[in-house]
Computed example of a mutant assay.
Amino acid sequence: MWSTVRDAAAPGYRAVLVADAAATYSDEAHNTTLTVVHRCFGDVGTAAEVLALLHAGGPGSPAGAGAP
């Protein structure tokens, strides 16, 4: 999870981490990762939240770019 987010952030992308589709070895590590990603590298949301943004045409979504 970390390396993907860092690799996306390096060239300037803002990553989106789907919190309920990612896992680590403990709840504490998971929650720490979500916090750090939100503060430093991108956005964090549940699958339902991310799908709602995509369907609504949120920033960066295909619908927001004028796709059908």
Rank of each mutant, 00 (worst) to 15 (best):
W2E: 11
T35K: 11
T32R: 15
V18A: 01
H38G: 07
T24K: 02
C40I: 06
A47Y: 15
A23P: 03
A52V: 07
R6D: 11
H30K: 00
S26H: 02
G60K: 00
L51W: 13
M1D: 09
L54V: 11
H30M: 00
D43N: 12
D43P: 04
V18W: 06
V5G: 02
T32W: 15
D27F: 08
A9S: 14
A9I: 08
G58S: 04
N31R: 14
G58H: 01
S3M: 13
V36I: 08
T4G: 09
N31E: 15
G42V: 00
A29Y: 12
H38F: 08
W2Q: 08
V50K: 04
T35E: 15
G60Y: 05
V36C: 08
E28Y: 14
A56D: 12
L53N: 09
Y13T: 06
A67C: 11
G45M: 05
V36S: 10
T32F: 14
V16L: 06
A22Q: 04
A21G: 07
V5M: 03
A22H: 05
A10G: 09
P59L: 10
P11L: 00
T32V: 09
A29C: 04
G12R: 02
C40A: 12
G60R: 01
D43S: 14
P68I: 12
D20K: 00
V16F: 06
A48P: 00
V5L: 03
D20H: 04
A19H: 06
G60I: 03
L34H: 03
T33S: 10
D7Q: 12
L34I: 02
S61D: 07
V44S: 00
R39W: 14
L51Q: 07
S3P: 06
A9W: 15
G66Q: 07
G66M: 10
Y25I: 07
T4A: 09
A67I: 14
A9T: 07
D7L: 10
T4I: 11
L51D: 11
A23W: 06
A23I: 05
H38M: 05
T24M: 05
V16E: 08
T46G: 05
R39L: 13
S61F: 08
V36W: 15
N31L: 11
G57I: 01
W2S: 04
T46M: 04
A52T: 11
N31G: 13
V5N: 05
F41D: 02
A65L: 14
D43Q: 11
P11K: 01
A63G: 02
A47T: 13
N31W: 14
V18L: 00
D20L: 02
A23M: 05
R14W: 10
C40K: 11
T4Q: 14
S3Y: 15
R6L: 15
A19M: 06
M1I: 09
V18D: 01
A47N: 13
A47M: 14
G45F: 07
R6G: 09
F41R: 01
C40N: 11
T24D: 07
D27V: 00
F41W: 06
M1L: 10
A15T: 00
